[in-house]
Protein backbone atom coordinates (compact mmCIF):
# COMPACT_ATOMS: atom_id res chain seq x y z
CA UNK A 1 0.00 0.00 0.00
CA UNK A 2 1.35 3.42 -0.87
CA UNK A 3 1.74 6.12 1.75
CA UNK A 4 -0.75 8.97 2.15
CA UNK A 5 0.27 12.14 0.34
CA UNK A 6 1.01 15.47 2.00
CA UNK A 7 1.57 18.63 0.02
CA UNK A 8 4.60 20.89 0.48
CA UNK A 9 5.12 24.34 -1.02
CA UNK A 10 8.81 25.23 -1.09
CA UNK A 11 8.91 28.89 -0.08
CA UNK A 12 11.99 29.12 2.11
CA UNK A 13 14.43 30.64 -0.35
CA UNK A 14 15.99 34.06 0.02
CA UNK A 15 14.35 35.37 -3.21
CA UNK A 16 17.55 37.32 -3.92
CA UNK A 17 17.06 37.56 -7.68
CA UNK A 18 13.37 38.47 -7.34
CA UNK A 19 14.18 41.17 -4.81
CA UNK A 20 11.01 40.48 -2.84
CA UNK A 21 9.92 37.36 -0.94
CA UNK A 22 8.39 35.08 -3.57
CA UNK A 23 5.90 33.79 -0.98
CA UNK A 24 4.27 37.23 -1.01
CA UNK A 25 3.82 37.59 -4.74
CA UNK A 26 0.43 37.43 -6.41
CA UNK A 27 -0.34 35.58 -9.58
CA UNK A 28 -3.61 36.34 -11.36
CA UNK A 29 -4.75 38.31 -8.31
CA UNK A 30 -4.19 35.41 -5.87
CA UNK A 31 -1.32 34.98 -3.42
CA UNK A 32 1.24 32.47 -4.73
CA UNK A 33 1.11 30.25 -1.63
CA UNK A 34 -2.69 30.39 -1.40
CA UNK A 35 -3.08 29.40 -5.04
CA UNK A 36 -0.73 26.42 -4.74
CA UNK A 37 -2.25 25.49 -1.37
CA UNK A 38 -5.71 25.43 -2.95
CA UNK A 39 -4.54 23.20 -5.81
CA UNK A 40 -2.51 20.87 -3.58
CA UNK A 41 -5.42 20.38 -1.19
CA UNK A 42 -7.35 18.67 -4.02
CA UNK A 43 -4.85 15.82 -4.16
CA UNK A 44 -3.23 15.87 -0.70
CA UNK A 45 -4.63 15.12 2.74
CA UNK A 46 -2.71 18.01 4.33
CA UNK A 47 -0.72 20.90 2.91
CA UNK A 48 2.31 22.57 4.49
CA UNK A 49 4.47 25.54 3.69
CA UNK A 50 8.27 25.25 3.81
CA UNK A 51 9.92 28.38 5.26
CA UNK A 52 13.35 29.20 6.63
CA UNK A 53 13.61 30.04 10.33
CA UNK A 54 12.75 33.69 10.86
CA UNK A 55 10.68 34.09 7.70
CA UNK A 56 7.13 35.28 8.31
CA UNK A 57 3.94 33.28 7.96
CA UNK A 58 2.19 34.50 4.79
CA UNK A 59 -1.40 35.66 4.98
CA UNK A 60 -3.91 32.82 5.10
CA UNK A 61 -1.49 30.38 6.79
CA UNK A 62 -1.04 29.30 10.41
CA UNK A 63 2.34 28.68 12.04
CA UNK A 64 1.20 25.07 12.59
CA UNK A 65 1.08 24.64 8.80
CA UNK A 66 4.61 25.92 8.36
CA UNK A 67 7.57 23.54 8.37
CA UNK A 68 10.71 25.38 9.36
CA UNK A 69 13.99 24.37 7.74
CA UNK A 70 16.21 22.22 9.90
CA UNK A 71 19.99 22.14 9.74
CA UNK A 72 20.00 19.39 7.11
CA UNK A 73 21.41 19.67 3.57
CA UNK A 74 20.86 23.04 1.87
CA UNK A 75 18.70 24.53 -0.87
CA UNK A 76 15.46 22.78 -1.86
CA UNK A 77 16.68 19.49 -0.39
CA UNK A 78 16.68 21.11 3.04
CA UNK A 79 12.96 21.96 2.79
CA UNK A 80 12.05 18.49 1.58
CA UNK A 81 14.07 16.63 4.22
CA UNK A 82 12.72 18.92 6.95
CA UNK A 83 9.20 17.89 5.92
CA UNK A 84 10.16 14.22 6.17
CA UNK A 85 11.57 14.84 9.66
CA UNK A 86 8.14 16.09 10.67
CA UNK A 87 6.03 13.42 8.95
CA UNK A 88 8.34 10.54 7.96
CA UNK A 89 5.53 8.16 6.99
CA UNK A 90 3.94 10.45 4.42
CA UNK A 91 4.80 10.81 0.77
CA UNK A 92 5.39 14.47 -0.09
CA UNK A 93 4.09 16.17 -3.19
CA UNK A 94 6.46 19.11 -3.52
CA UNK A 95 5.83 22.25 -5.56
CA UNK A 96 7.94 25.42 -5.66
CA UNK A 97 6.30 28.71 -4.80
CA UNK A 98 7.63 30.26 -8.01
CA UNK A 99 5.86 27.84 -10.35
CA UNK A 100 2.74 29.85 -11.19
CA UNK A 101 1.57 27.74 -14.14
CA UNK A 102 1.30 24.44 -12.26
CA UNK A 103 -2.35 23.39 -12.12
CA UNK A 104 -4.52 20.72 -10.58
CA UNK A 105 -4.54 18.55 -13.71
CA UNK A 106 -0.74 18.37 -13.64
CA UNK A 107 -0.75 17.23 -10.00
CA UNK A 108 -3.30 14.51 -10.85
CA UNK A 109 -1.07 13.39 -13.71
CA UNK A 110 1.86 13.15 -11.32
CA UNK A 111 -0.07 11.12 -8.74
CA UNK A 112 -1.55 8.81 -11.39
CA UNK A 113 1.95 8.24 -12.78
CA UNK A 114 3.33 7.36 -9.34
CA UNK A 115 5.95 4.65 -9.68
CA UNK A 116 6.25 1.46 -7.61
CA UNK A 117 9.46 0.76 -5.73
CA UNK A 118 10.99 4.15 -6.50
CA UNK A 119 12.08 6.97 -4.18
CA UNK A 120 10.32 9.62 -6.22
CA UNK A 121 8.10 10.34 -9.20
CA UNK A 122 8.76 13.45 -11.23
CA UNK A 123 8.54 15.00 -14.69
CA UNK A 124 11.28 15.82 -17.15
CA UNK A 125 11.77 19.59 -16.91
CA UNK A 126 10.22 22.15 -19.28
CA UNK A 127 13.16 21.77 -21.69
CA UNK A 128 12.84 17.98 -21.63
CA UNK A 129 16.43 17.60 -20.42
CA UNK A 130 16.57 16.62 -16.76
CA UNK A 131 14.26 15.35 -14.04
CA UNK A 132 12.54 18.34 -12.43
CA UNK A 133 12.81 18.17 -8.63
CA UNK A 134 9.90 20.53 -8.06
CA UNK A 135 6.41 19.42 -8.85
CA UNK A 136 7.51 15.94 -7.82
CA UNK A 137 6.29 13.23 -5.46
CA UNK A 138 8.79 12.01 -2.88
CA UNK A 139 8.26 8.64 -1.17
CA UNK A 140 9.08 7.91 2.49
CA UNK A 141 12.23 6.08 1.32
CA UNK A 142 13.61 9.27 -0.23
CA UNK A 143 15.47 10.70 2.81
CA UNK A 144 17.55 7.52 3.07
CA UNK A 145 18.34 7.69 -0.66
CA UNK A 146 19.25 11.36 -0.38
CA UNK A 147 21.50 10.92 2.63
CA UNK A 148 24.85 10.83 0.73
CA UNK A 149 24.06 14.21 -0.86
CA UNK A 150 22.56 15.70 2.29
CA UNK A 151 25.56 14.83 4.44
CA UNK A 152 27.85 16.53 1.91
CA UNK A 153 25.76 19.67 2.24
CA UNK A 154 24.48 19.43 -1.34
CA UNK A 155 21.14 21.13 -1.93
CA UNK A 156 19.80 20.00 -5.28
CA UNK A 157 17.35 17.09 -5.20
CA UNK A 158 17.85 16.68 -8.97
CA UNK A 159 21.12 14.84 -8.31
CA UNK A 160 19.24 12.37 -6.15
CA UNK A 161 16.54 11.89 -8.79
CA UNK A 162 19.16 11.18 -11.46
CA UNK A 163 21.26 8.81 -9.39
CA UNK A 164 18.69 6.76 -7.49
CA UNK A 165 15.65 4.79 -8.68
CA UNK A 166 12.93 7.25 -9.61
CA UNK A 167 10.08 7.33 -12.09
CA UNK A 168 10.49 10.14 -14.62
CA UNK A 169 7.36 11.10 -16.57
CA UNK A 170 7.52 12.87 -19.95
CA UNK A 171 7.98 16.65 -19.87
CA UNK A 172 4.68 18.53 -19.63
CA UNK A 173 6.43 21.55 -21.18
CA UNK A 174 6.27 25.19 -20.18
CA UNK A 175 3.84 24.53 -17.32
CA UNK A 176 6.85 23.66 -15.12
CA UNK A 177 8.64 26.95 -15.76
CA UNK A 178 9.55 28.98 -12.71
CA UNK A 179 9.92 32.70 -12.18
CA UNK A 180 13.07 33.50 -10.26
CA UNK A 181 13.44 37.17 -11.24
CA UNK A 182 11.13 40.05 -12.21
CA UNK A 183 12.17 39.43 -15.81
CA UNK A 184 11.11 35.76 -15.71
CA UNK A 185 7.94 36.72 -13.84
CA UNK A 186 7.09 39.15 -16.60
CA UNK A 187 7.62 36.46 -19.24
CA UNK A 188 5.33 34.00 -17.43
CA UNK A 189 2.75 36.71 -16.78
CA UNK A 190 2.39 37.23 -20.52
CA UNK A 191 1.35 33.55 -20.73
CA UNK A 192 -1.07 33.97 -17.83
CA UNK A 193 -2.67 37.32 -17.59
CA UNK A 194 -5.07 39.47 -19.57
CA UNK A 195 -3.46 42.81 -20.50
CA UNK A 196 -4.46 45.80 -18.36
CA UNK A 197 -4.69 49.48 -19.23
CA UNK A 198 -2.86 51.71 -16.78
CA UNK A 199 -1.36 55.20 -16.72
CA UNK A 200 2.36 55.76 -16.23
CA UNK A 201 3.50 59.12 -14.89
CA UNK A 202 7.08 60.29 -15.36
CA UNK A 203 9.02 62.73 -13.22
CA UNK A 204 12.31 64.62 -13.38
CA UNK A 205 15.08 62.77 -15.28
CA UNK A 206 12.70 60.01 -16.31
CA UNK A 207 10.27 62.53 -17.83
CA UNK A 208 13.15 64.22 -19.65
CA UNK A 209 14.42 60.87 -20.95
CA UNK A 210 10.97 59.75 -22.12
CA UNK A 211 9.80 63.17 -23.27
CA UNK A 212 6.37 62.63 -21.72
CA UNK A 213 4.86 63.43 -18.33
CA UNK A 214 2.27 60.67 -18.67
CA UNK A 215 1.40 57.89 -21.05
CA UNK A 216 -1.33 55.27 -21.40
CA UNK A 217 0.20 51.82 -21.23
CA UNK A 218 -1.14 48.31 -21.78
CA UNK A 219 0.71 45.78 -19.69
CA UNK A 220 0.63 42.22 -18.43
CA UNK A 221 2.98 43.07 -15.54
CA UNK A 222 1.43 41.66 -12.35
CA UNK A 223 3.34 43.91 -9.98
CA UNK A 224 5.44 47.04 -9.81
CA UNK A 225 8.76 45.18 -10.04
CA UNK A 226 7.66 43.60 -13.31
CA UNK A 227 6.27 46.88 -14.62
CA UNK A 228 9.63 48.52 -13.87
CA UNK A 229 11.41 45.76 -15.78
CA UNK A 230 9.02 46.12 -18.73
CA UNK A 231 9.23 49.94 -18.68
CA UNK A 232 13.02 49.98 -18.34
CA UNK A 233 13.35 47.81 -21.41
CA UNK A 234 10.66 49.54 -23.47
CA UNK A 235 11.97 53.04 -22.82
CA UNK A 236 15.65 52.03 -22.55
CA UNK A 237 15.89 53.75 -19.17
CA UNK A 238 19.55 54.10 -18.18
CA UNK A 239 18.73 53.80 -14.47
CA UNK A 240 19.12 51.23 -11.70
CA UNK A 241 15.96 50.22 -9.87
CA UNK A 242 17.59 50.36 -6.42
CA UNK A 243 17.58 54.16 -6.22
CA UNK A 244 13.96 54.42 -7.38
CA UNK A 245 10.71 54.28 -5.41
CA UNK A 246 7.48 52.96 -6.87
CA UNK A 247 4.30 54.97 -6.44
CA UNK A 248 0.84 53.64 -7.09
CA UNK A 249 -2.21 55.94 -7.19
CA UNK A 250 -0.35 58.77 -5.43
CA UNK A 251 0.87 56.58 -2.54
CA UNK A 252 4.33 55.11 -1.91
CA UNK A 253 4.19 51.40 -2.67
CA UNK A 254 6.33 48.26 -2.49
CA UNK A 255 7.90 46.65 -5.55
CA UNK A 256 5.85 43.53 -4.87
CA UNK A 257 2.54 45.42 -4.83
CA UNK A 258 0.13 44.15 -7.49
CA UNK A 259 -1.14 46.28 -10.37
CA UNK A 260 -4.84 46.65 -11.12
CA UNK A 261 -6.53 47.97 -14.25
CA UNK A 262 -6.79 51.76 -14.22
CA UNK A 263 -3.88 52.26 -11.79
CA UNK A 264 -1.66 55.32 -12.06
CA UNK A 265 1.95 54.33 -11.51
CA UNK A 266 5.16 56.34 -11.23
CA UNK A 267 8.78 55.43 -10.57
CA UNK A 268 10.31 58.25 -8.57
CA UNK A 269 14.01 59.01 -9.01
CA UNK A 270 16.23 59.78 -5.99
CA UNK A 271 15.09 63.10 -4.55
CA UNK A 272 17.20 66.26 -4.59
CA UNK A 273 15.15 69.04 -3.03
CA UNK A 274 16.36 71.78 -0.71
Amino acid sequence: MSAGIHGLILAGGASRRMGTDKAHLEWRGEGATLRLGRILSRVCSRVFLSRAPGQDVPEGWEESEVIRDLEVASGPLRGILSAFEKHPDAAWLVVAVDQPLVDEALLHRLVEGRGEGVHATCFLDSDGEWPDPTCALYEPTFPEAARPWATQGKGCPRKVLINTPSRVLPSPGAILRDADSPEERLALSSLLGAPMDIVLEHFAMVRDHVGLAREDVTTVAPDLACLWEETRRRLRLPFERTAFRPVRNDAFAAWSDPIRPGDRVAFLPPVSGG
Binding site: F203, A204, M205, R245, L268, P269, V271, S272, G273, G274
Partner: peptide, 14 residues
Amino acid sequence: IVDQVKHRVPIWKK
Protein backbone atom coordinates in the same frame (compact mmCIF):
# COMPACT_ATOMS: atom_id res chain seq x y z
CA ILE B 1 13.38 69.43 9.16
CA VAL B 2 15.56 70.74 6.32
CA ASP B 3 17.68 67.54 6.35
CA GLN B 4 14.60 65.35 6.22
CA VAL B 5 13.00 67.35 3.42
CA LYS B 6 16.16 67.07 1.34
CA HIS B 7 16.23 63.29 1.66
CA ARG B 8 12.60 62.26 1.73
CA VAL B 9 10.33 64.65 -0.10
CA PRO B 10 9.84 63.85 -3.81
CA ILE B 11 11.27 67.07 -5.20
CA TRP B 12 13.93 67.17 -7.89
CA LYS B 13 16.41 69.89 -8.79
CA LYS B 14 17.64 70.62 -12.28
